[in-house]
Design a protein around this nucleic acid. Structure first.
Lengths: 228, 228
DNA sequence: CGGGCGCTTGATTTGAATCAAACTGGGTGG
DNA sequence: CCACCCAGTTTGATTCAAATCAAGCGCCCG
């Protein structure tokens, strides 16, 4: 068991609740949340900061959202990538950070601060959901901090692929379609695009992965993703 | 205004409440929290994981606590340093992480999961405090992620000194006593000890700081801490 | 008084950034 | 429909910042 493992996604509890049967209290909580939610749709590369404006909280229903900062020298640092089912907005908006939709048809449900307060006051389940999703965010950040620091570029890319395989859970298939470009991966891992590309090629050459297309990757040997 | 700025510490609200006059509802919330708190004292380098065992939440009353992971190659990565007034324990315990007291006489008040639930149910202020402290944790992690990735060793050390000056707020004096060793700083910033030392020396040579002792630092030119 | 921990400085090595250039494929406009 | 274009990707050559290796110093604590 590697310290890089373990980043559960509790937020998809919300998604799950939308479709499955749950105890009475939860059904009420879920329907109340769904009634309050304001869903919006965003295009690729479109700024979607409004979804968490003024303390709002939001849930990614489809697509993905990237949160990033721009350095004074123009470099972009992607702090976090939120996939379908993730909640965001737990840290009050910092003007230095930006939110963008990663793909077309990125759908996001948002809740105002007041709506969340009302819901949490009425439904303990919603309060627990919020707590768990904030904890998820912390865990994702801590995990990413581990990946960012010290380890080699190969390990970063390997850890990224492993994390994506887990988070997108195709549950069975060993193939994933990367949600973001090489440039995004580079800015997320804090390395150069060329290095990302070179590392992918190295993994391909040694048979750990198969690049069906640059984005569509088949994991041949998951164990080789960690400590190349 | 630099993207590296802004990491407010809301947790000291709790400390403040212990001593100052506050509205009635908050006085009750504070006294209820203080009544529930179980304070413990820890020695330097002592493991203090129990304070957040089984979902407990804790507040550093004095001293400091470091949270770290050990890599398979023995390298230590310090995820976060919690100073006096900080709350910790919002991400359910991950067995890969360890907590240690940084200095002797590190005092920590801890609250069981049940106590927190009871308190938040009775006092909205406690719920808000918990939310804000979790948000603080997220902000600290995001900020540290920015420091970790991409920027040079000089910028990392400069950012660390700037952050410490702000978080320890001696409010007036330009001097700080670093709470952790060079080794800790290195493991926190993800660089080698030698690099930390060299960078400090470089800052001293160019007159940005004065090293009264290795730990007691006077900031001469705060603006030079950012982009050496 | 000795030992070890924390800190500093120097020499050498190395992994990744940078610079440079070519390839691919999907979409657009002529 | 085809040519072009451009964003995304890949590979190679060179450079450079920081890791590693090596060694000495001061001092706190036992």
């Amino acid at each position: 068991m590697n310290i890089m493992d373990e980043t559960p996604e509790c937020a998809e509890l919300f998604r799950a609740q939308q479709h499955s049967e749950t105890p009475d209290s939860e059904v009420n909580a879920t329907s109340a949340m769904m009634a309050a939610a304001r869903a919006t749709c965003w295009r690729r590369n479109q700024a979607c900061d409004p979804v968490i404006a003024r303390g709002a909280v939001a849930c990614v229903l489809a697509g993905a959202v990237r949160k990033f900062a721009l350095r004074s020298n123009g470099q972009r640092q992607i702090i976090e990538v939120n996939l379908t089912g993730d909640f965001l907005g737990f840290a009050p908006a910092n003007p230095a950070f930006f939110l963008e939709a990663v793909s077309n048809d990125t759908r996001i449900a948002s809740f105002t601060r007041e709506q969340i307060d009302t819901l949490t006051a009425r439904f303990p389940d919603v309060a627990a959901l919020m707590r768990n999703c904030a904890a998820d965010t912390i865990r994702r950040l801590e995990h990413h901090l581990l990946v960012q620091s010290r380890i080699t570029a190969s390990e970063k890319v390997g850890a990224y692929l492993a994390t994506m395989t887990r988070r997108m859970r195709p549950s069975g298939t060993k193939a994933i379609v990367l949600p973001i470009t090489r440039y995004d991966i580079a800015d997320h891992l804090g390395i150069a695009v060329e290095t990302v590309s070179r590392t992918m090629s190295a993994l391909r050459r040694r048979g750990s992965i198969v690049l069906r297309t640059p984005r569509d990757i088949e994991i041949r040997d998951p164990s080789m993703l960690f400590d190349i």
